[in-house]
Deep mutational scan, measured.
Amino acid sequence: HNLTITQGKLFFHYNPKLCLSEIHKMEEVSGTKGRQERNDIALKTNGDQASCENELLKFSYIRTSFDKILLRWEPYWPPDFRDLLGFMLFYKEAPYQNVTEFDGQDACGSNSWTVVDIDPPLRSNDPKSQNHPGWLMRGLKPWTQYAIFVKTLVTFSDERRTYGAKSDIIYVQTDATNPSVPLDPISVSNSSSQIILKWKPPSDPNGNITHYLVFWERQAEDSELFELDYCLKGLKLPSRTWSPPFESEDSQKHNQSEYEDSAGECCSCPKTDSQILKELEESSFRKTFEDYLHNVVFVPRKTSSGTGAEDPRPSRKRRSLGDVGNVTVAVPTVAAFPNTSSTSVPTSPEEHRPFEKVVNKESLVISGLRHFTGYRIELQACNQDTPEERCSVAAYVSARTMPEAKADDIVGPVTHEIFENNVVHLMWQEPKEPNGLIVLYEVSYRRYGDEELHLCVSRKHFALERGCRLRGLSPGNYSVRIRATSLAGNGSWTEPTYFYVTDYLDVPSNIA
């Protein structure tokens, strides 16, 4: 807008934040220059609390790290170098490059900038070799853009010569660093050979998330399962459950009422301010606690030095998902009996873990797994792929695949051998790939016309006998059925096997 004052003059007093240069501009645009008398524009009460600059400061050096910015700028000295009290560095987070010096300023003089007072450097006698002032900004957020400017702080001049310097606002972004852990990993099994893994992005990506790394490792069953005799009275049979499938998407929606109208769909109840505040506090606490764990609990591995020492970490090797089922080394339970199943799973520490690289999504279907087997899954978020990966501390989750139908069934015939004193040795093959492992066998036998009897055969007993022995049988026709019990439950009964026990007292003698 054009402003013209045809008559009258300007009068400025007691404006401590208004620089004289701005008042002189007002004289020019209003056409009143030359009308004012000496005392109409006070030299001592206008701009006496402001830094009124008329020179431009330029930054000469900028260096960044993930949490620091090192700045240096060209030296500046007023005509009387004693008038320079120091520099004021202003900075704040700036997602967009549209910041002005006066953003967030209120009537009390406060604003949204963080201000650092910096002492002037030592003055050199040689004007050509003056030290460049600077400042190291610490405690910054990774991968965050900051708006920065600097200006001088000078003393009051009796001659009211307006001098000083100020830089333009520059924008500097800190470097990326390792992201925080992925949030809320959930693993479920939808079949006997697959596990579905879902997660949420890290709360602090500290860069642009480029991919996720998912490692999985087959877990050995508890050692007590191999040692305890679950045929003993009072000892509860062990059981394991597989990871249940995901709930429906509708039930997972946030901010939804727990109660549904019987007449149909209901609208979600909005969260109160107290609920939102509580969630923010919980989120802040979780982030602080995660940072504490990362800094205190997890110790970084030592990389190899120039002395030739090897990095103890196993090298990563990509495998196809079809090879995942046989990740671990199978060892027989008892070496003397080769027909026992290889369900003991000690994992070799030198073995390469299978892994998958996930790009542009937060889910993965891990296939080719062994049925009813526990897996430990390790999830890392990465925001750099080359020249070397920059990934987060791992988040861990466990899951067990679903049982395989008929995996616990005894394959092959049940054979028998009759000894003296009416002892019958029953023999059968253990299931080759049971659900988890076989903890015991149930032997059901009966003599024709009598009630059915049951015998429990422990895992250890089966390994020693290759089956079991029935003792003290009365003469007669017998039928026997056997079924295995694994961590997933009972298998199917075998087809009945028949044998006849004679009275050993009636056996004919070869003595003449």
Rank of each mutant, 00 (worst) to 15 (best):
C231N: 01
V296S: 09
Q256T: 06
D408R: 00
E310H: 03
S474W: 12
S239N: 03
S223R: 10
Q380G: 15
C468K: 08
P475F: 05
F337P: 06
S392N: 00
A263K: 03
K406Q: 11
T288K: 10
L277K: 15
P300D: 15
S305K: 08
L453V: 06
R370M: 04
K236A: 15
S251E: 13
C267K: 09
D229I: 13
D323M: 15
G467Q: 04
G234Y: 06
G412V: 06
S348L: 09
R286D: 03
Q380N: 14
A394V: 14
F372A: 08
Y478K: 01
V329A: 15
R376T: 08
L487P: 09
S320R: 11
Q384I: 10
P332T: 06
P413M: 13
M427P: 02
S305H: 03
S283E: 11
N326V: 15
G308Y: 06
S283P: 09
T343V: 10
H211M: 15
L455P: 01
H454D: 15
S363A: 14
K361D: 03
S367V: 09
C456Y: 01
A309T: 04
V324M: 05
E388C: 11
C266H: 01
A309N: 14
E495Q: 04
P312T: 08
T288A: 13
S305A: 12
V329R: 06
T288M: 09
D229Y: 15
F372V: 01
V329D: 04
R471F: 13
V359Q: 14
P270M: 15
V414M: 05
R390S: 07
K406I: 11
F226I: 13
A407I: 06
Y259W: 14
V331F: 12
R390Q: 11
L369G: 03
A263R: 14
R301V: 06
S243F: 13
F372L: 06
Q256W: 07
H294A: 03
T502S: 12
P312H: 11
G368L: 07
V443T: 02
F499V: 10
E495P: 04
P238S: 05
Y500F: 12
P496R: 11
L235H: 12
S363Q: 13
S474C: 15
T343M: 09
K432W: 04
H294E: 11
V423A: 14
A263H: 07
T373R: 03
I438C: 06
G472F: 11
G472M: 08
H371N: 04
Y500V: 12
R390G: 08
R459Q: 14
A488F: 11
K460M: 09
S223D: 15
M402I: 14
S203Y: 14
K317F: 11
F337Q: 11
I366Y: 01
S315T: 14
V457I: 11
V424S: 01
I366Q: 02
A463H: 09
V324W: 05
L321R: 08
Y292R: 07
Q256K: 07
M427Q: 09
I482F: 01
L277M: 11
F499T: 01
S203A: 12
P434W: 00
D273I: 12
L237T: 06
T340C: 03
S458Y: 14
R286Y: 13
R446L: 11
A220I: 10
T415Q: 11
E282P: 15
F226W: 03
K460Y: 12
P205V: 01
E420F: 02
R319S: 11
D385Q: 05
S274P: 15
A263N: 05
G308R: 09
T241E: 04
G374N: 11
E356C: 13
E258L: 05
Q384R: 15
C231F: 01
E227T: 06
C456I: 02
D291F: 06
L505M: 05
E465N: 10
N206H: 13
S248C: 13
G264L: 14
K278S: 13
N326G: 05
S458D: 05
N206G: 08
P403E: 04
V439L: 09
H294Y: 13
D291M: 10
E224L: 05
K357S: 14
S243G: 10
T494I: 05
G207P: 05
T415P: 02
N422E: 13
V334E: 03
P338T: 11
A394K: 15
G308A: 11
F298W: 04
A335N: 11
N477V: 02
S223Y: 09
Y500S: 08
I482C: 03
A335K: 10
L225A: 06
S344Q: 04
E356F: 07
V334H: 12
G476K: 00
R390H: 02
D408N: 14
S398N: 08
A309G: 12
G325P: 12
G368V: 09
E433T: 08
E452A: 13
D250S: 09
S248W: 15
A405R: 15
I438Y: 03
A484M: 07
P244D: 13
E351R: 05
D229C: 09
S251D: 13
Y448V: 07
Y441R: 00
Y498N: 15
P332R: 12
S305T: 15
K317Y: 09
R353L: 05
N206K: 05
K236D: 04
V424G: 03
Y375A: 03
Q252Y: 03
K287E: 13
S486D: 01
N422P: 02
G472T: 03
T415F: 09
Q256I: 12
P300Y: 03
A335R: 13
L232K: 05
A330L: 15
E362S: 09
K233W: 02
D450H: 10
F355K: 12
E378L: 10
A484L: 02
S344K: 10
E281A: 09
G325R: 02
L473G: 01
D385L: 10
Y500L: 09
V423T: 14
V329Y: 05
C231V: 02
N339Q: 13
W216K: 06
L470G: 01
Q256L: 07
S363Y: 05
R218G: 03
T303G: 09
L473N: 08
F285Y: 12
P403Y: 10
E442K: 07
V345Y: 12
F246Y: 08
H416S: 09
R469Y: 07
A394E: 05
K460H: 08
G325M: 08
S344P: 11
L364P: 00
Q429M: 15
P508S: 05
R240K: 11
W216G: 14
S474K: 05
V297S: 10
R471Q: 08
R447T: 09
V331T: 10
G489E: 02
D506Q: 15
D204A: 09
Y375K: 00
R318N: 06
V439W: 09
V397Y: 11
P238E: 06
L364R: 13
E290D: 15
R469V: 09
P338C: 09
I276Y: 09
K460L: 09
V414R: 02
S304Q: 05
T272N: 13
L277D: 06
L280R: 12
E224W: 04
S239K: 05
P346T: 15
A263C: 09
P270R: 06
E465C: 07
P354Y: 14
A395V: 11
K357W: 03
T502A: 14
I276L: 04
N255V: 10
Y396P: 14
I366L: 10
E279Q: 15
V397M: 05
M402K: 04
E430L: 08
L487N: 13
A407P: 04
N206R: 15
S274V: 08
S367M: 08
